[in-house]
Design a protein around this nucleic acid. Structure first.
Lengths: 222, 222
DNA sequence: TTGAAGAACATACGTTGGTATAGGCGGATG
DNA sequence: CATCCGCCTATACCAACGTATGTTCTTCAA
């Protein structure tokens, strides 16, 4: 819609290939180009990690056996880093335990060499779809989280009880405050959370308070 | 707590084995008995289906190759039937595509013969945990669904708009009603839904209205 | 026919929530 | 030290919500 001077293929989603078989990489690049998909490749996970931030990968095509580390270990590593990238595995010497591990860890597909083009392309399409779905979700979540981060500890408590369905009166007695104070905190909280309604707030609260990595217990100071 | 005359091991979760190798079945039965888990076995999916309702399976141990149908096909069949039972596959002649298919369809584990006892037991424990978690979820959902089913079409509309965060006034104008009428419907709806608060209602609404198989359009009778 | 149930509307009153305005207290920061 | 900010409180008013009670109309079934 906004026809500014942005580089040409900007919204073509980047597919990242990591495989030490450079010949294979090049042929995959050709394959993707032929169907209008933009891809890059690296021959080691280390090389990829250096460019990770800048290339914004939406789909990873990963060899199980790699020079520096196992593709499966790398999958775990990305998980620990909080990077949720859909992964398609390709292997020449795979076995069933490897496959189980990869799929349990959320891989989109696990293909064996020689890879059939149609299989790979449909896997890529699935991966990109998943990436897109996750992205929207993640953006909304990040926005809510940043609003939540701007709350004072009192406002967080009020949010918690409001989301639990308690009345101002009840919240006040629970916190040992007057009702009017609760109203003030509640109002400020609603504004900071940019909640358009109570229903809206409840949904935000559920997504924020469900996350274990930043529960309300971490926000206790004083 | 209620010490009535119910059969002895009532809360031991039933593990169901389907494998045409009867010898294996018997040895697995022994294994499970040795760790205090109750299990049954069948040598075909058809035989299992006849007893399905009565045995209330929490975990299925399924051979991929079966006399009447493929274990993988049976997995799909159960899915179509709406039966969500955690499945552990066991196979003597498995390959990677089979594994991928099974795991994609939600299998807990995919093991190869000969099966190591510790692997199977930890898989069973994972399956039972998942079953338990799903069960609670499903019960809550079923309860909400039954309450929702008791609503009149007007009450469902009001529920929809209330969950969207609209005020009575807005809902009234949207539905071409007076505000008082909306209040009446809203009150009846809250009572029927057994919602203890608006926050509570929003959560129920989200779980009911999110399900595609019974959207608000299907519930029109009168 | 009678009755039950859904739908709609109204008046009235009480409770709860939201807003405005105004002030006091304590810690942090310039 | 002065200032800002978080926190707490208060009075007062209005809007929104909940409840009670009563009436009208239609439909559907015992």
């Amino acid at each position: 819609m906004t026809s500014s001077r942005t580089p040409i293929e900007r919204d073509t989603p980047p597919i990242c290939i990591i495989d030490d078989d450079e010949e294979l990489c090049l042929s995959l690049l050709n394959l993707f180009r032929s169907v209008g998909l933009k891809a890059n490749y690296w021959t080691s996970t280390q090389a990829f990690l250096k460019a990770d931030a800048s290339c914004d990968p939406k789909c990873l095509i990963l060899d199980v056996r790699l020079p520096d580390s196992s593709g499966l270990d790398f999958q775990d590593e990305l998980e620990r880093m909080g990077r949720d990238i859909p992964i398609i595995f390709i292997t020449g010497h795979g076995d069933i335990p490897m496959t189980v591990r990869a799929m349990k860890a959320g891989a989109v597909e696990f293909l064996t060499k020689p890879v059939r083009e149609e299989d790979l392309l449909s896997a890529v399409r699935a991966a990109l779809a998943r990436s897109k779905a996750t992205e929207h979700e993640a953006e909304r979540f990040a926005s809510v989280r940043s609003h939540y981060a701007s709350l004072t500890s009192r406002e967080r408590e009020v949010l918690k009880y409001v989301a639990a369905g308690m009345m101002n009166k009840q919240i006040a007695s629970r916190l040992g405050l007057s009702e009017i104070t609760v109203k003030v905190h509640r109002r400020n909280m609603m504004t900071k959370m940019k909640a358009s309604s109570l229903a809206d707030l409840v949904r935000m609260a559920d997504s924020v308070l469900a996350a274990p990595d930043n529960g309300p217990s971490s926000g206790v100071e004083s």
